[in-house]
Write a protein that binds this DNA or RNA. Sequence first.
DNA 1: GATGAATGAGATTTCATTCAT
DNA 2: TATGAATGAAATCTCATTCAT
Lengths: 211, 211, 211, 211
Amino acid sequence: MSATAPAALQPRKRPRRARAVATVDAIFEATIQLLLSGGLSRLTTTRVAERAGVSVGTMYQYFPHKQALIYGLNARYLEALAERIEAACRACHGARVDEMVRLLIETYWRAKTERADVTRALYLSVAGMDNSALIDEFARRADDATMAMLQTAADARFANIELVNRTLVTVVFGTVRNAFERNLEGARADAVRAELIRMCRAYLREAASSP
Amino acid sequence: MSATAPAALQPRKRPRRARAVATVDAIFEATIQLLLSGGLSRLTTTRVAERAGVSVGTMYQYFPHKQALIYGLNARYLEALAERIEAACRACHGARVDEMVRLLIETYWRAKTERADVTRALYLSVAGMDNSALIDEFARRADDATMAMLQTAADARFANIELVNRTLVTVVFGTVRNAFERNLEGARADAVRAELIRMCRAYLREAASSP
Amino acid sequence: MSATAPAALQPRKRPRRARAVATVDAIFEATIQLLLSGGLSRLTTTRVAERAGVSVGTMYQYFPHKQALIYGLNARYLEALAERIEAACRACHGARVDEMVRLLIETYWRAKTERADVTRALYLSVAGMDNSALIDEFARRADDATMAMLQTAADARFANIELVNRTLVTVVFGTVRNAFERNLEGARADAVRAELIRMCRAYLREAASSP
Amino acid sequence: MSATAPAALQPRKRPRRARAVATVDAIFEATIQLLLSGGLSRLTTTRVAERAGVSVGTMYQYFPHKQALIYGLNARYLEALAERIEAACRACHGARVDEMVRLLIETYWRAKTERADVTRALYLSVAGMDNSALIDEFARRADDATMAMLQTAADARFANIELVNRTLVTVVFGTVRNAFERNLEGARADAVRAELIRMCRAYLREAASSP
DNA sequence: GATGAATGAGATTTCATTCAT
DNA sequence: TATGAATGAAATCTCATTCAT
């Protein structure tokens, strides 16, 4: 009987798992708050555990050392970000280039600004670890997604699409980061974002026409 | 830069003698090497002094605490960078927009890549201090310089020049940083740089024509 | 052994069922392996339980604390060793001194070397507890057994038999331990063992003749 | 001893000044006291520093980690012990075998018992480190010294001197250790020591006559 | 009974900074 | 003035033990 019992009838481990997930979430949230309030140098394992409401020991069961905590935080964030970009790009397959540019920039910009505190906290944290693997993976996924999108453009064909694509993502992601670092906010940020869209459209228009 | 630097972050004394200058240089160089080899977390005052060939005590004569060291390193670098940008912009007064864009981008790109190790070390170090004052000051100087340059363009007039200028510098500086983070190097970096020039030219052309 | 063991170091319960015995065996075996691979400092309760294939909780049912585990391991081993010595001595009652010496040394030497890993692990573990009770008890049993044997020697009578006996066991047990510590193995160990027998025989011959 | 010591276990710096020597002595003395009062498990770096009257930081300047401290303690002790044995053996060159045996055993026994607390502390500490290098080096020096002595015996020549020598030192050193472990003290210890001398003499007499 | 996640005291180690020489 | 030994607060991490499930 039990061999064929559906998974839904085995709730034994579920509460435990749910709790573990909540614990990890609390730890990440505490990390972000501490990064924002005191920067990387004030981020100590003791304080993270305390703020998260768990014991240090528990924290060390989920993260074998401090680096793993920071890495995990970045991994989770970049994973979510990559997914959003991929979804946005998929949604634009077959659209016109102008639309693609608009959606790409707005998606990325919104992802960065809707929880600006998290974004800032992560920018603060990356110096504390070897993040090249994470960055590379994220860059690869983003490049692939935008490339696949650009190839389906309804109104354009690009001679050197690899280069055009790489330029586009480097410019968009870089500009957003720099806007952040300069504390561009509110109306100013909106204006720059609109101009960035204009700029990228102008570029792609030119890149499509000339071989 | 020093004009706006908080008093607490100032070097204890201006090195007036040649020997003192050499000492400070050695300390900065040691800091950069250690940042590159072990990141911010391996950067200790003892190691810096040792690598620089001076005693900790001597180092504390020039930098009252560790933060002052990192701050000083960034200040010196951003000061030099700002000066290069200002010089490049001055050299372009009265030129055509295409030329301005080319020189701005090439100047900045070269400044970042000719000692890529230093650039990387500084990116690693910024998380360790409150750098907003430095960043703001640098952004202001860069904005002013490019703005003054754009206003003298031989072949263009911009309706909303403030926004156009802000967009331009945000895009250029952001893109360079992102190219760095993605480890774009060699031919790939050159190609993206050329495309960035193309993109900015297309943008300014459009911005000049339409109000 | 158990007669004199302090109450606090006693196993919580006597394993009566076969399964419980197997569990305790597995725990002891895991302890030995961990001692050999990482020394006393790497011996943690979690690792012992994991290696033994039981949960920590279960382990704490058999051993109320870590000390009890180490104590139990030593007690079991010394108990078995004492029994072997007693048996060997009993088997020699009425024999000649040369035979007694040979059997005593060979029995002890073999007991130590047939599972050299266990012997080594136990030498490593004793520093981690107050083992004087165990050592004393073992020494008493060994002394009694050899004493009883010597008194029945067919070809000798000893004036100060207490001293002769104490000297004999101290020399034999000490030499074996030292041979171990010096990593005497193979043919070298055999040669030293044979010489030890010769030496003890020479001593007892002399001790028997002179009052 | 230091010739074969692994680099990782070496003291961080050689104490050159008198004060530094006093500091290192105080640390060693504190270590011994703590080993005696609480065993290896109560030996913590904090307590050692506190008892020695220095700060932890200072302690870590002389010993890069706890293992190095224990290693250093043993190395110093075994070095002194080896020197005493070597001196005693040198003093016996050309003497008769009986005299050699007496001096060897009395020297070693006295070295172990005149500061019995230290001896005991060291026996407790050895389980906490990889001591094979130290033990090997000490054994080699002791073997060499006794061998050189035996070869000059005025009244004996040994066919298989290597084996005889190895047996002799293994027996003597092992017996002393065992006497210690059994807490043989006072008159009992003296009696056993005298018997050990007798035994070794009888052995060497026999070994010298028969090939 | 069995389990193993959670606990938190406490261990080891680091490192910015001072100050006697 | 230059040095670098000494300091000790504080950081990271471990692990024996408990207890809810």
